[in-house]
Design a binder for these strands. Structure first.
Length: 464
RNA sequence: GGCGGCAUAGCCAAGUGGUAAGGCAGAGGUCUGCAAAACCUCCAUUCCCCAGUUCGAAUCUGGGUGCCGCCUCCA
């Protein structure tokens, strides 16, 4: 079935077609590892996970690269300010390398909790320094660079299609620029490819280069890594919407200037998470929420957040609130209970995937990843007249895309002995019609974290 | 100031010309000793406001109002 994806380059949905046969090269911008990811960041990775799962579900062989930016990303603007990693190191009294390692692990742990599939290859900016240097050299040979007192810069005026992604009017943009100019830059949009280490300060992360000791600029690593790992399989590049105007625009400029070839056919961007009051989530806004802080540590399944993310289309700002969490929490619990009930009705047997429901589901996810509609399709399937065994097979098939652990089977055999004893005692009390004792035991079990359900076939108990 | 986006029920949210998906919350019912869970039913004559185009508009056009994002580190 055809997949339509919204391409920022053309500002419209386009039929997706890989460059080479059945293979898809997917590059997703990973984090700069100087701090924890907040749940707004994670929304984008959930969107990218759905993108990948949808491609796989459609039968494509996806080669997915995600980078870890562990050097070169500056705290200031316009290529000024301090390296975020070095700043983080000073803040926490560790080395920049330790900072990168620590926050990379924390990030990967978040992805795992959200059931986000690992990329085919993780790559670190610091592992591709030679490739980045080679790319800069190529740009230098072709006359796209110039040298200032603090680094090697890309001259954006020499690349004709500079605004093809952002669609911005550069003249107007310059007039409105609110930031301090770097006086040595020829154009305000020019950006650093290589920065020299300061003469008086020894950086923790620095490398030899043809231009002197220093470190790479923020944008060059993504170009080098995508070309290194994907070669000519540059199909889809995804990231957050904030990257359109600067980061991705610069990536395209430097890559296409160097190779003379088109750099990625599809550019996809996820919208921000906003909190009540309508502000985006950012450290500077003072509303930095982490997955662990908002979910794991409060005893809420992190997949509740994944479920919540499905209820808003990825290109639209998503509102986050305690109310939204509660709604998603109930919604996911309900969905899992529905699956549980269906499994009981079918006696645990799975039938065949219903083609009509699958076609409906496919048409929704293949229409620019319309998860809100896909979730509606899921509900309609579950409430249909299909035989339970077929419903079970169908929902488990959808689960390949959803990744909500709907197939998680509660291990009733693994219940602790003290729970089983209480269940026995309660069953006896119920047989004696001693409702007071029965209710008391049920309260005790609930306090222990178990749900008690009486059905006509007996009592079932499972962790809540 | 420039560019872009959004405004749909109590809340979240699909829907881009043919008469308002879905979720959460709420109400009633079936089941149950009572619950819980599940299931069934109900829940926007109406889509920010005003004008226009059209047989027909939440969807198109013009104007207005409000909110947000990017342009500056940022998913």
């Amino acid at each position: 079935m055809k997949i339509n994806l919204y391409n920022t380059l053309t500002r419209q949905k386009e039929a997706f077609k890989p460059i080479r046969g059945n293979q898809v090269g997917l590059y997703t911008c990973g984090p700069t590892v100087y701090n924890y990811a907040h749940i707004g960041n994670l929304r984008t990775y959930i969107f990218e996970d759905i993108l990948k799962r949808v491609l796989v579900y459609n039968g494509y062989d996806v080669k997915h690269i995600m980078n870890i930016t562990d050097v070169g990303h500056l705290t200031g603007d316009r290529d000024m300010g301090e390296d975020k990693l070095e700043a983080g190191a000073r803040r926490e009294g560790k080395t920049a390398w330790e900072i990168a390692e620590f926050y990379t692990k924390a990030f990967q742990s978040d992805l795992e909790k959200l059931n986000i599939l690992d990329p085919t290859t993780w790559c670190k900016a610091t592992d591709t320094i030679p490739e980045q240097i080679a790319l800069i050299q190529e740009l230098e040979e072709k006359g796209f660079t110039y040298r200032t007192s603090d680094g090697i810069y890309f001259d954006t005026s020499k690349f004709p299609g500079y605004t093809k992604l952002s669609h911005q009017d550069l003249d107007a943009l310059q007039e409105g620029a609110r930031v301090e100019r770097n006086p040595e830059k020829r154009n305000s949009t020019d950006f650093a490819l290589w920065k020299f280490s300061p003469e008086d300060v020894r950086r923790q992360m620095e490398w030899e280069s043809p231009w002197g000791i220093g470190f790479p600029g923020w944008h060059i690593e993504c170009s080098a890594m995508s070309m290194t790992y994907l070669g000519d399989q540059l199909d889809i590049h995804a990231g957050g919407t904030d990257h359109i105007d600067v980061h991705h625009t610069n990536e395209i400029a430097q890559s296409e200037a160097a190779t003379g070839k088109r750099f990625f056919n599809f550019w996809m961007h996820g919208a921000f998470l906003i909190i009540a009051g309508g502000k985006k989530m950012a450290k500077s806004e003072g509303n930095f929420l982490t997955l662990d802080g908002s979910f794991t540590e409060r005893g809420i399944d992190p997949l509740v957040y994944r479920f919540a993310a499905f209820l808003t289309h990825y290109r639209k700002p998503m509102e986050y609130s305690e109310e939204a969490v509660a709604a998603a929490r109930n919604g996911l619990a309900h969905l899992r209970n529905q699956v549980r009930a269906i499994r009981e009705k079918s006696g645990g047997r799975t039938g065949t995937v219903d083609t009509g429901s699958k076609d409906r589901f496919l048409s929704e996810i293949n229409d620019d990843l319309n998860m809100p509609r896909a979730m509606a399709a899921v509900q309609e399937m579950l409430k249909s007249n299909l035989p339970p065994a077929d419903k079970l097979a169908t929902i488990l098939d959808f689960e390949k895309v959803l990744g909500l652990e709907l197939d998680r089977v509660d291990d009733t055999e693994g219940l602790p002995p003290e729970v089983l004893e209480k269940v026995d005692a309660r069953n006896k009390a119920r047989a004696d019609k001693n409702w007071a004792l029965s209710d008391q035991i049920r309260d005790e079990l609930q306090a222990m974290g178990f749900v008690v359900q009486d059905t006509k076939d007996g009592t079932t108990v499972f962790p809540s």
